[in-house]
Design a protein around this nucleic acid. Structure first.
Length: 413
DNA sequence: TCTGGGGTCCTAGGACCC
DNA sequence: TCTGGGGTCCTAGGACCC
């Protein structure tokens, strides 16, 4: 039996833990740049606010309905997630942290699973302040489905018999099945396959032909045949990307250079943190697709590096070389993406003649990391990153850094 | 004025090998 | 008149996830 614990309205709930006075207000959390809605409390959902709604469209409603607004704060969510996961780890020998707010638990061998699920739920709420829902079923896909039903009901849903599963699937919208996205949903619904039950009744040959092996696995899982195992071990990443919209559009080459340097530097830091090196670096510029009045361009370049690296100077140099090749005048760019593919563990990199050269830049990076970890992010950086971030994100509704800064720690009277 | 960021897996097709 | 068979690796594109 697979259990799935999912935090309710996770980002909104994280803020509420620290500001309990907003426990009954509609709360929304905004994306980077305060661009659009990425999390909503139940009260905000009830007002009809959809995921992804641009913030500027809501300004009147926010005043009228007294909606509480937060800029996103990923360091806070990361810390709250860790608290939830640490608590969950005590409930099963096999846990898989599936995402920042979700965790699979193997629930075999427990006497009364329904009762155990309730206990998990109550413990997490009590110990972390984050409300969660718990679903369980014979496969991961069914457990996801059970979890959604739990959210609609009392927070717990166990699908452990064929009858219960049949009933749950009979009116479950096909587009809500885990693994069915926009494209497949549109295709299935156009063929009048609009419930999980109807999808499950399709012949396997049809599923295989139209939805590939991924669809077949989903189909089998809905029939109770487990195809997706628990992933309880660490797997290194295969690609890494730093991409972020600027606070404003820009056609200034100098600004783009500074932003590209900064993003490459972040990428280098993330690579070092995970003890990975990269062979291949890509740089892409993007204009704002929503601005139909402006010319659009998405130039990109992929650069093969001489040698796998993760040091800041080499990666910035490569990224700037790429930027120079793709930059075009006459476009207002909104975003730059710097990404690494072909990742190799640091300790598996082939030695080469130029090792001593890399050593110097590796040492520089090490010093950067040490200083920035002690004095705070961005304290020391390469000159090419610029002095002032003219392109920096907008974050007007930022809360204190409760879990990461001594200055912001909560005060108890 | 203002519309997120970071990942995974699968498939098809091309270049290459012996 | 007639030109093999069996592989690997890489990339781009398309689907999905939170």
């Amino acid at each position: 039996m697979f259990g799935l614990v999912d935090c309710n309205n996770f980002y909104a709930s994280c803020h509420r833990v620290w500001m309990p006075e907003h426990r009954t207000s509609p709360v929304i959390v905004l994306s980077n740049n305060d661009g659009c809605v990425i999390a909503r409390s139940n009260e905000a959902k009830a007002l009809g606010i959809k995921m992804g709604t641009p913030f500027f469209e809501l300004k009147e409603m926010i005043i009228e309905k007294k909606i509480i607004v937060f800029s996103s704060h990923y360091a806070l969510y990361g810390d709250m997630s860790e608290r939830v996961m640490n608590n969950l780890a005590r409930f099963s020998p096999e846990v898989e942290v599936y995402s920042i707010d979700e965790c699979f638990l193997k629930l075999d061998g427990f006497d009364d699973i329904a009762k155990y699920m309730t206990k998990i739920r109550k413990t997490i709420i009590k110990n972390t302040g984050i409300p969660v829902s718990v679903g369980a079923a014979p496969t991961k896909t069914l457990a996801k489905l059970a979890n959604k039903l739990a959210k609609k009901g009392n927070g717990v849903c166990l699908l452990d018999t064929a009858d219960k599963i049949d009933l749950a699937l009979s009116d479950y919208p096909v587009e809500d099945v885990w693994g069915i996205g926009r494209q497949y949903a549109a295709k299935l619904i156009s063929l009048k396959i609009d419930t999980a039950e109807k999808f499950r009744k399709m012949p396997i040959e049809w599923v295989n032909k139209n939805m590939s092996i991924v669809g077949v696995r989903m189909w089998r899982e809905l029939r109770g045949e487990s195809c997706l195992n628990m992933k309880t071990y660490f797997e290194p990443k295969k690609g890494m990307c730093t991409s972020r919209a600027f606070g404003k559009l820009t056609d200034d080459y100098q600004e783009l250079q500074e932003a590209t340097s900064n993003y490459a530097s972040r990428l280098a830091f993330k690579l070092r943190r995970e003890k990975l090196c990269t062979n291949v670096l890509s740089v892409r510029l993007l204009t704002n697709m929503f601005r139909k009045d402006l010319p659009q361009a998405f130039p990109s370049i992929t650069i093969a590096l001489d040698h796998p690296v993760n040091n800041t100077p080499d990666l910035i140099k490569a990224a700037l070389r790429g930027l120079k090749k793709i930059f075009r005048k006459g476009f207002k760019f909104q975003k730059v993406e710097v990404s690494a593919t072909g990742l190799i563990p640091e300790n598996e990199v082939q030695l080469n003649f130029f090792k001593s050269y890399n050593d110097r830049n590796n040492k520089v990076s090490q010093v950067l990391d040490n200083l920035n970890s002690y004095y705070g992010k961005g304290t020391i950086r390469l000159a090419s990153e610029g002095l002032v971030k003219k392109w920096d994100m907008r974050r007007s509704f930022l809360t204190p850094d409760y879990t990461n800064s001594w200055d912001d720690i909560i005060k108890v009277k």
